[in-house]
Design a binder for these strands. Sequence first.
DNA 1: GTCTATATTTGGATAGAC
DNA 2: GTCTATCCAAATATAGAC
Lengths: 217, 217
Amino acid sequence: MLETLNIGRESDGQAAPRIDRRGARRAATKAEIIDAAWALVREHGLGALSLRDLGERVGMRAPSLYQYFPSKHAIYDAMFGQGMREALAAVDAAIDGLDARTALRTQARVIFEFATSDPARAQLLFQRTIPGFEPSPESYAPALELSERLQTSLLAAGITDPDAMDLCTALVSGLINQQLANDPGGERWARLVDRTVDMFFASVAPAASAPKKRSPR
Amino acid sequence: MLETLNIGRESDGQAAPRIDRRGARRAATKAEIIDAAWALVREHGLGALSLRDLGERVGMRAPSLYQYFPSKHAIYDAMFGQGMREALAAVDAAIDGLDARTALRTQARVIFEFATSDPARAQLLFQRTIPGFEPSPESYAPALELSERLQTSLLAAGITDPDAMDLCTALVSGLINQQLANDPGGERWARLVDRTVDMFFASVAPAASAPKKRSPR
DNA sequence: GTCTATATTTGGATAGAC
DNA sequence: GTCTATCCAAATATAGAC
């Protein structure tokens, strides 16, 4: 499972290496380091990650980590990229084959669940809380793809309002925020996701939002 | 202006002192320190506040600050309390005399403007980003009062849905978040505040939300 | 490839002189 | 009430041995 993660991407921007065991081993170690980093930030908070602790967790000293990542920010960046790819994968897996409107609702649910199930991850991916850090273009790419999924679903649902997308992200982001800030691990805002989506549909595409009504045209 | 801030509150929980110039002077210095702290966090970020910088800003050495605040967290706490009191004051000043529905809309606008106009302050007041810090009950009190204002306005508007308040805070919080995270200083989500409030009214109290309609009962 | 040792910086906080 | 001096701790990062 480890070696499936980054095969072929192990180059840090250089030319792709041949298929050598050396590179595979190295990639596996990097993945192990990132996994340990996730465990630590879940345990002690995102900002509390230290190279000492991280090294200890993977059975090496802090300086040895520099063989795998050139800086602490590079570790955050790898975590960011992995997290965003996971979010994208979760959305893609969930909306496959659904009609446009159901796909939108599902995206809201999936992103909400994804974000609230791991506060530290949500903090890294969706807030700007680490002083000098901003994701590299490569790590940010899946975030852009995520936006595209939303835009695509909106269009497929016949929603052409240019503000619909901003409105939609604000709604989901607000539910996530309140849940994390005021009721972490609870259900207080989770219960309101579907209702909020209904509200969104009613506002942005009122014609098709009331299934009981008989005024299709 | 400085000495109007905290007169009578200078006791750190002890019995109230007589009206002495000593206490007034001390309170003024504390206020000056807090003002300088705000300037620093606006400049370098909330987490980048250091006692060295702060001391330099007010013309004293870092250790001297301990004559006024027992710890760095106590400084954050004073900032938190001041910020929340300001938010409450801004809301109270804005909704005075308004009808319930207009008061709700105004609260959303005012809080949005208050939060987005100072990102560092918003981070302190509305996110949990500083590792060990959480506000003292005294500093948190105005935040509770702010919630009461919202609840009062909702009831006055005839909105008895128990989820309305959570929904409302999520909406405003989402708009604020997206504005701060993706378009700081811009208007992209600011433009959507009124529309979002309309959407909220339509969802939570549909009867009175469409002024054109003629079905008051 | 991992280690020890260390450089460097930075920060919060305390002790005691003045 | 402010200062100097210092402590203590922690963190990132580098150099060079093995």
